[in-house]
Structure formats: C-alpha cells, structure tokens
Amino acid sequence: MTNVFTLKQPGAVDDHGLERNPGMAYTPELFNRIRINRSAVERRAATIAKRRSIKKEFQTAWLLKAITCMDLTTLAGDDTPGKVRRLCQKARRPVRRDILDGLGVGDMNITTGAVCVYHNLIPTAVKALEGTDIPVAAVSTGFPAGQIPQPLKIAQIRESVKAGATEIDIVISRAMVLTGDWKAIYEEVKAYREACGEAHLKAILATGELGTLTNVAKASWVCMQAGADFIKTSTGKESVNATLPYSLVMVRAIRDYHQLTGYKVGYKPAGGISKASEAIAYLVLIKEELGNEWLNPHLFRFGASSLLGDIERQLEHRLTGSYSASYRHPMS
C-alpha cells in the first residue's frame, strides 16, 4: 500500500501555490490491512523530542514558527463578539512589539496561522481581521459531537463559507468508525469537501474516541481519500486530545499518502498543547517524519488557546535572560 509510485493528477492550486488534495476513489485496500503497534509507537513518541535539542536563537525561531502555525482558538458557550475581537487582535499581534523588536524580528509580521471560532462568531472575526492575511476557521458539522442530521451539517458548512470562513473544521462520525463503516465516512467527508468549495477542509478524527491507533490510521486514510486538506486530531472537547502517539500515526499516514499520490495533506494537532516545549516536540516530530516542507501554516497548525501565553514568556526570557510572568503579556 505504500509503494512509491505516484497517482498524481493535476489538482486545484490554492492561493499559496500548493496543490490541494483532490482526494481519490474510495480504496479500502490501501488501508484495511494497516496494523499499528501501540507500544512501538509510544516508544518512538517518547524519545523523538529527546533525540533533538533546540537552543538559543534556534529555539526562538522555532517558537516564532509555532506562533505562525497556530489556530488561535476560542470555542466556548460564552463566546461573545467582544471576546472574539480581543482574540483577533491577539492573532494580529501575538507577541509584544518590544520583544519582537528586541529579538530583531519586528519586521517579520508574525501573526498566528488562523483564528478558529464557532459559526456565529465568523462575521465578527472576519471584520476584526480585515486587512490581514489571517484566515478565519470555523468548526462545523455539529461540532464537537457531530450528532446532527447530515443535511444540517452540509448546510452549516455552506453557511459558514458564506459568512466568510475560509477554513472549515469538520468532525467525522465516530460511530461509523466504531462500527467499521469506512465507506460511509468517505461519503460524508467527500460531501463536506464539496460543500466547502474553495474553503479548506480540516477533518477532525476525535482520536480520543476512536478506541485504537489502528482506527486512527484508517480514519486518516479515509479522510485523505475523501479529499481532506488537513487531518486534525481532536475537538479539544474529548477527554484525551492531541498526543504525540496519535500524531505519529497520523503523520505517517500523511507521508504514505503523499508518496502514493504526490499530494501533501496538512496536519493539525489540537487540544492539550499548552507548553512551548510541547510545541517544539511537535515541530520536531513533523520535521523528522514529514520533513521541512510541512513546517509552515499551509501544512501544519496547532489548535491551541493557552499555548501562546507560554511561548510569549519563553520569548521574553530569551530576550531578557529573566523568567517572565503571564501578567506581562496582553491577554486575548
């Protein structure tokens, strides 16, 4: 299943010159024999970050990279336009200007990769981000559980795209994974992709609810075959969200898919990543398993809400040599 021959056909090119994954026919033989060895995956995950060490100016550059790959997110019942405007301002200026200037990167126009909100807040976010390249991502299809009728899911995507979201984070039906109905997931995601049109589709697997790593790998394949632009671990609402083992399994599927088809699918770990050191570990994992080509916001995103704060403190520490405090950094 992982032959290096390529099936690549011309696909649509997005704004960044990256060919979007057009998907392919439902081909279960490409994934139905996958078996993932959990213990071996966990061993690799446990050592991957210890095998590399990123210090000083290298660490600074990597943390800035992490910011540009961040979907700054708020997904709460009490989100208001005011809260989202604050978030968008933070997305525009994720780090205090004096820190960036001090580090000599004031002219790099560091922003987050995107802002991620619920449907109702899309107009606010779009307005607040006017004049920037920062896309607005909306969670959709009955996020987080996805337990609503299919037509409503399609309608929700259409509405969100109409409202100005250029990235749609959909959830797959976990029940179909758990009952082994891969074809149904394929059809569902394919329909979402059509509904997205020009907007990019991020398929959330909700890895914490899929039971096994083998299911995570298979779900990754089905979503990619259905035309997902990104595959994403979690909603942030499951009891277990992004982990390095899930990530290893998913990025290895991305690698195999790329080798097979020539298309690069993006990866987004989401939920539970709150420390700068963890962000670095994820970047190392991507660099080691997929390569540098994936280390940019077009192919890699963090879904995070509190990670930025820790990175800001690390950057200030780098500048001043003193450990920072959270109150010294503007909140979102």
Binding site: I54, K55, A61, W62, V105, N292
Partner: peptide, 16 residues
C-alpha cells in the same frame, strides 16, 4: 545564522 534565517531553514542548531 539569524533568527530570520533559521525561521526559514528550520535547522536544529548546536546543543552541546
């Protein structure tokens, strides 16, 4: 290497 350059190359750099 400057931070800007590293941002592009994403090299690991030395960590003795």
């Amino acid at each position: 290497m400057s931070i800007k350059e590293i941002f592009e190359t994403m090299d690991y750099g030395p960590a003795p």
